[in-house]
Write a protein that binds this DNA or RNA. Structure first.
Length: 716
DNA sequence: AGGTCGGATCTTTTT
DNA sequence: GATCCGACCT
């Protein structure tokens, strides 16, 4: 391929990025500015210019989807396979490293990956093992603590309790969990990263080897990296490699799970001779939408700074609908979608975006009522289903008896008479003797410490696993799964379940066999044993949600899951104070800015049409709320918005950009305090000046009408 | 061993 | 309102 063919269809800024000769570059890539394009073309450029062999390229992304897309596009552009390129997610690549160097990493060869659920159970076990009260020390919080520390690259030994008992306990739990995981050869998601970081850090020879190999290191969505990922990158880049990172500080929406936008500033400090390139030309949205997005995000502080523009048309005004309530809001959106569909747009080109998943319910109801097909993104994944995890647990245990989570999962599924007492006995022995659950069970059997019934049950289970292990040796992957499913007794177990549920599960189990038959490790994993690759795939890439991905249906998802996608028509619903920005974020300025970025992400998903809406009454957690319109609405230039109304008799307060008071500091949804009735929320306002009457819903005393002049309400 | 009941809680989600 | 979790009961 010719150099000019690579640069052919790129704009100036994109060309600059692709061809830069500066060893370190930070590409500030706005929404819809062709970020993936730049990454892919940059790789092609490096190869064509002889700046790297394919095996010298390391390209990292966050999601499997992004990695797959990048691989596909590189191959398309090059017209040949990746060669020895490493293109994958942080976790996928770390997994690969640990499989190749398990010994140096201090892991057993058959180490397994724990997903969230496995991890939480393991943490719970650690908490119980320390004789702590679970009500006081919830596994979820401890899990969060452990993951946050790992994301910072910290082991328990590196933590100090500062005399804080709570902190000390957390560290104890972390340590106990870590010891148990190590003993069982289990690795959680954070551990994959931390372990490979340490692997490189502590093995000079190995690090040298990889540094000599990877001369071009590229990172996608750099704003989402956490401290450990950045440290990992710095380690591999070293002094000599080229470091090419692409990101957008305005789309950083994952700080709550450890992402540090600060890494962008850190990069600038750590590599003072870097080149900063801005991609600001947008190929997605209309001028109107971009103006709105720019104006909104300008309210944030400390940005690297970037202004999106387009050579395309202004497009139509952004529609704003003030709904009477959430049901009305849903109906309005569905109505418009039907109109658009009738005019020729596909349903799949319409997306309904919301802040919290709970909002999908009302939208789904309205869609179903109107018989409009839809798909809700997110939610349960194939490999996260209980029956799939059960089957895989049998396989994991047959493969590696020390796999404690797998043991716990299936020791009594299907029920075979191993009760809690027996299990506790096993757990205790395991803890005291530092054995795996399997080894502890063997131990207890040998010393005849089980009750007769338990002994029989447990022996039966162990025979079953040993038997499975013997039978699957040498079989193909799909036969392995067939054998395991058949031998586990899971099918009979689920057949007993009432209703269609059991049937579903059995169907999923046969789907698992199909998945195994069709399984091909991706290019990064071809060297590892097939079974390890398959189990890794199941844990790391939990699979898509429900099917129907290719049908023409309206797309429902949270704003978070919308990042990276685009649609002709976007309906951004629930623009209300308390919901968006969310209550839990509204007290902290930096969290508030993240909410704003989330809004920015939502707005920039739209190509042609953007509809914003809010409800004056919203049912949430079972009771009604009367929120104010979101502050974000006020941050859009009003000339870009056009208020839409349905008929004249819908009680709708004009969107009233100042949306301020009635003269008494009262507004809809305002929290107020009354001398005798206590705290309440303003439901309605009527009249003006001295005649203003206000309806308040008091927490204690129900709904009351008051004359504002006499009520003496205080704004709470 | 398994089911049922009451209480607490309720962002966002990938790997 | 819905769900998840633990305690309690059968």
């Amino acid at each position: 391929m010719q150099a000019n063919r690579i640069l052919d269809r790129l704009n100036r800024a994109q060309q600059t990025a692709v061809t830069t000769a500066t060893p370190q570059s930070l590409v500030l890539a706005g929404a819809g500015s062709g970020k993936t394009r730049v990454l892919v073309h940059r790789i092609a450029w490096c190869l064509e210019q002889g700046l790297a062999a394919p095996s010298g390229v390391l390209a990292v992304t966050f999601t499997n989807k992004a990695a797959a897309e990048m691989r596909g596009r590189i191959e398309d552009l090059l017209g040949r396979p990746l060669g020895g390129m490493w293109v994958g997610t942080f976790h996928g690549l770390c997994h690969r490293l640990l499989r190749s160097h398990w010994r140096e990493a201090g892991l057993p060869e058959q180490f397994q990956i724990m997903d969230n659920e496995d991890q939480q159970k393991a943490v719970r076990r650690a908490i119980r093992g320390l004789n702590l009260d679970e009500a006081h020390w919830p596994a979820k919080e401890a899990q969060w603590f452990i993951n946050a520390r790992k994301d910072e690259g910290k082991r328990p030994a590196a933590l100090r309790d500062e005399g804080d008992l709570g902190l000390k306990t957390m560290i104890d739990i972390y340590r106990a969990y870590e010891e148990a995981s190590q003993r069982a050869g289990l690795v959680d998601f954070g551990e994959l990263l931390l372990r490979s970081y340490e692997l490189w850090r502590d093995n000079a020879g190995l690090l040298r080897h990889y540094r000599e190999r990877f001369f071009q290191v590229l990172v996608d969505e750099f704003q989402d990296t956490n401290a450990l990922q950045y440290a990992w990158l710095r380690l591999i880049v070293g002094e000599q490699a080229n470091f090419f990172v692409v990101g957008d500080d305005d789309q950083s929406i994952y700080s709550w799970r450890g992402a540090q936008v600060e890494n962008m500033q850190r990069f600038r400090r750590d590599y003072p001779r870097h080149e900063l390139i801005r991609l600001e030309q947008n190929y997605r949205s209309t001028g109107t939408i971009l103006d709105a997005a720019n104006a909104l995000i300008a309210n944030n502080t400390g940005r690297l700074g970037k202004e999106l523009w387009t050579s395309g048309s202004r497009g139509e005004a952004i529609k704003l609908y003030a709904a009477y309530n959430d049901i009305d809001e849903a109906r309005f959106c569905v109505d418009r979608i039907r109109t658009l569909h009738a005019a020729g747009d596909r349903f799949a080109e319409c997306a309904m975006l919301y802040r919290v998943s709970a909002q999908s319910r009302v939208l789904e109801d309205a869609l179903r009522q109107a018989e409009v097909p839809y798909r809700v993104h997110g939610g349960f994944k194939f490999y996260e289903r209980a029956e799939i995890k059960d089957a895989l647990a049998y396989l994991r245990l047959a493969n590696h008896r020390g796999d404690d989570p797998a043991f716990e999962r299936v020791i009594n599924t299907p029920t075979r008479g191993v009760g809690n007492r027996t299990l506790d006995e096993i757990r205790n022995t395991a803890r005291l003797e530092r054995l795996s659950l399997w080894a502890a069970t063997e131990r207890l059997l040998a010393s005849r410490e089980f009750a007769a019934r338990a002994a029989t049950a447990v022996t039966g289970f162990m025979r079953l696993i040993d038997d499975l292990a013997a039978r699957i040796a040498g079989l193909g992957l799909d036969s392995v799964l067939e054998t395991v499913i058949e031998g586990s007794g899971l099918v009979a177990h689920f057949q007993k379940e009432k209703g269609d549920r059991g049937l579903d599960r059995i169907e999923n189990l046969s789907e698992l066999v199909t998945a195994a038959r069709d399984f091909e490790p991706d290019e990064n994993d071809v060297e590892m044993p097939l079974l390890a690759a398959f189990l890794g795939h199941a844990a790391l890439e939990a699979g898509a949600g429900q099917g129907g991905e290719f049908d023409d249906c309206v797309q429902l998802m949270t704003l978070h899951s919308a990042k990276g996608l685009e649609f002709q028509n976007v309906f951004l619903v629930g623009l209300e104070e308390g919901l968006f920005p969310h209550q839990r974020s509204s007290s902290d300025p930096s969290q508030l800015e993240e909410e704003r970025r989330l809004c920015y992400v939502g707005v920039t998903r739209a190509r042609h049409r953007l509809v914003l809406s809010y409800a004056e009454c919203r049912r949430l957690h079972g009771s009604d709320f009367y929120p104010q319109a979101s502050r974000f609405l006020r941050e859009f230039p009003s000339e870009l918005l056009e208020e839409v109304r349905l008929g004249g008799d819908i009680p709708s307060h004009s969107f009233a950009l100042p949306a301020e008071s009635s003269g008494y500091g009262l507004k809809l949804g305002q929290r107020v305090l009354h001398r005798t009735f206590g705290e309440g929320v303003v439901l309605h306002l009527e009249g003006r000046g001295a005649h203003t009457r206000v309806q308040v819903n008091f927490a204690g005393g129900g709904v009351k009408w008051l004359v504002a002049a006499y009520a003496g309400l205080e704004v709470a």
